[in-house]
């Protein structure tokens, strides 16, 4: 058994699905996390999905793919996706792709 490098917890309240990701998002970890989050979105049909990135220790451009893919899915389902508390590194990569204009970031 190989240790998972990206773990997550979920909360579903009042039509808002919050996924708190922890650890490292790279191409390896993004593949399984992405199918898990999609299954949750399909099952619970939230009006809003929040990806809480405050516990992320590493993210490369595979994380952008993960975020953009979930954003597109939520849009197709008539909902919205927002990011919560991304660290400075995540924001740096996010801004490189110009995603700041498209996806809302909530900081608290």
């Amino acid at each position: 058994m190989i240790k998972k490098t990206c773990l997550y917890e979920t909360k579903n309240e009042d039509g808002v699905l919050t996924v708190t990701l922890r650890g490292e998002i790279d191409h390896h970890s993004a593949v399984s996390v992405r199918s898990d989050i999609d299954a949750l979105i399909y099952e619970s049909r939230p009006r809003k999905t929040v990806l809480d990135l405050s516990q992320i220790e590493f993210m490369d451009s595979s994380g952008l793919g993960l975020i953009m893919g979930r954003y597109a899915l939520m849009e197709r389902m008539g909902g919205v996706l927002t990011l919560k508390n991304p660290n400075e590194r995540v924001v740096k990569i996010f801004e490189l792709a110009g995603l700041g204009r498209i996806i809302k970031i909530e900081n608290e």
Binding site: S61, S62, G65, L66, I93, A97
Partner: peptide
């Protein structure tokens, strides 16, 4: 497969 196309830019 959700590649962002940002690898070389990063």
């Amino acid at each position: 497969n959700e590649r962002s196309g940002m690898g070389f830019t990063v």
